[in-house]
Write a protein that binds this DNA or RNA. Structure first.
Length: 206
DNA sequence: AACTCGGGGCA
DNA sequence: TGCCCAGAGTT
């Protein structure tokens, strides 16, 4: 059953990729920190000029929090993000030779970087297989019965267990798009869902 | 486990 | 207008 769900998702969302605009690991890292709880389009609008002006950790980290905050004020949670991004940039310069680290532990020690952001960077920037679990990914895979329990590190292990390794990065996007378009948090469109019959959430919710 | 940050999108 | 959101840090 789970294998069949994965195969079907792959058919449904063949060409999905991240909507974030970035040209290197550093830009992806910053863009992903900015994207938390926020519309990607808004992030792209800001970063497309931000990265031209401040293309490196040293340059971006030299800003004062208020300066960066002013720059990104159209993005939600902008004060926290400004502070975290500058701290992260300074840490990259001081501890990582100005480079984005390529392992989970170092990434998660960067301010503003949690499980989801770390995995996005690992899989998208460095091709290190991992599954980034955000609210969409968890909700959809939970409803589909691919994972059980709360959203913890265990969720990632459960997903990695049922998804072929070569699809880990893609599966993140399949589940996100299915969550945004069909399997919505409220008023999920079960009647029109292409996975109807493979999923027992509709019965459970009734 | 609950609370906070937050502007923009959308009903 | 009110409600919600491609999370992470703090209490």
């Amino acid at each position: 059953m789970k294998k069949k769900i994965i195969e079907r998702l792959k058919e449904l969302y063949p060409d999905v990729k991240t909507a974030l605009f970035y040209r290197n690991p550093f830009e992806l890292l910053i863009a992903t920190i900015l994207s938390a709880q926020t519309n990607d389009n808004q992030v792209n609008k800001v970063t497309i000029t931000l990265f031209d002006k401040y293309p490196s950790p040293a340059l971006l980290g030299a800003l004062k929090p208020e300066e960066l905050a002013e720059y990104i004020k159209t993005i939600g949670l902008y004060k926290n993000k400004s502070k975290n991004i500058i701290a992260t940039c300074n840490l990259l310069v001081e501890k990582h030779n100005g480079q984005v680290p390529q392992n989970r532990e170092d990434l998660m020690n960067l301010p503003g970087v949690g499980r989801k952001t770390a995995n996005v960077v690992l899989s998208c920037a460095f091709n290190i297989p991992s599954i980034a679990v955000d609210t969409h990914v968890f909700r959809v895979s939970n409803r589909l019965g691919l994972v059980a329990g709360k959203d913890t590190l265990e969720t990632e292990k459960q997903l990695m267990d049922v998804i072929p390794k070569e699809s880990w990065s893609d599966a993140h996007h399949w589940l996100i798009w299915h969550g945004r378009l069909v399997c919505k948090a409220r008023n999920p469109m079960c009647e029109e869902c292409q996975l109807r019959g493979l999923c027992n959430f509709e019965q459970k919710k009734g």
